[in-house]
């Protein structure tokens, strides 16, 4: 399989009011076409920063970020990015927010087809009945789902997702994971997925990248060899799953606890 995303010795420094923060020590990572990679690690270790660089929203301080073999320069329009903070447009209803990408010249869609696809997406993320609500009238979890639908509707070849399901309850989260797995497999998408939830990462990912605390660097990378398609509702009762979970948690826990103590 070909390589989609490649980070070569990527570092990132931030200068804020005279102090320099090292957000990332040299990071090397390669993501194959159609691969689902989860990034986990303590808060502040640079996970969102990596997604921002792959999306071309900020340059690396050192090293290179490649997409399809070419350096990322400026906004990377091949990726759909669901950011940690939601960027729904507050003056648009849920349905109109989800429709946004289909209104653009680069993929203009006939109204009837756009209506159908919006309805499908609303169904998929379980927002039926809230089409006409404005973002301020939705709950945090509903806004996340609207943002997810807005990103999925135009089926970008690569998805960057930053804690997309953080605000959802456990049951709803499983439903969303199931939908996401199905869609990304069907459409053969490449996914870079940030989460704090190890179980979620194991359920979805082909590989899990564990970061250590700030300044962030890769501590270890693990292949998740569970067969696909995975049953997201039952996966966590599988003994292999439990074993993986225990191993990965052992890897992570010192950093997570240290980050917690610092905070």
């Amino acid at each position: 399989m070909t390589e989609k995303i490649r980070l070569e010795a990527v570092t990132k420094l931030f200068n804020t009011r005279g102090t320099t923060t090292v957000a990332l020590k040299p990071v090397d990572l390669s993501v194959r076409d159609n691969e689902f990679v989860a990034l986990v690690g303590p808060s502040g270790c640079g996970k969102s920063t990596i997604l921002n660089m792959v999306a071309g929203l900020m340059p690396a301080s050192g090293g290179r970020v490649l997409y399809d073999g070419a350096p990322v320069a400026g906004a990377n329009r091949r990726v759909g990015y669901m950011t940690q903070k939601d960027t729904l447009l507050p003056w648009r209803s849920t349905a109109d927010n989800i429709r946004l990408a289909l209104e653009l010249k680069c993929r203009r869609t006939a109204k009837s087809e756009a209506d159908d696809r919006v309805a499908q997406m609303i169904d998929l993320v379980g927002l039926k009945g809230f089409e006409k609500h404005f973002p301020a009238e939705l709950s945090g979890g509903m806004r996340k789902r609207a943002a997810l639908a807005r990103t999925l509707i135009y089926e970008p070849e690569t998805l960057l997702m930053d804690e997309p399901f953080g605000a959802l309850d456990a049951q709803l989260k499983l439903v969303m994971l199931d939908q996401l797995q199905r869609l990304t497999q069907d459409r053969r998408m490449t996914v870079l997925f940030v989460t704090h939830d190890l179980a979620e990462a194991i359920t979805l990912a082909d590989r899990i990248v564990i970061f250590s605390g700030r300044p962030g660097r890769i501590r270890s990378i693990h292949d998740i060899a569970l067969p696909r398609p995975r049953d997201v509702y039952k996966a966590r009762f599988d003994p292999d799953f439990a074993h993986l979970h225990a191993t990965l948690w052992d890897e992570m826990k010192d950093d997570v606890i240290a980050a917690g103590a610092r905070a």
Binding site: A75, V79, G80, T83, T87, W91, L100, L104
Partner: peptide
């Protein structure tokens, strides 16, 4: 961040203006 979201979706400058800057 809203501007960036539109950029990544492939919006032109004019579209960003009409769909984010003006209503915002």
């Amino acid at each position: 961040d809203q501007v960036h979201a539109l950029e990544l979706m492939g919006a032109s400058r004019g579209e960003i203006f009409r769909k984010v800057v003006a209503p915002g």
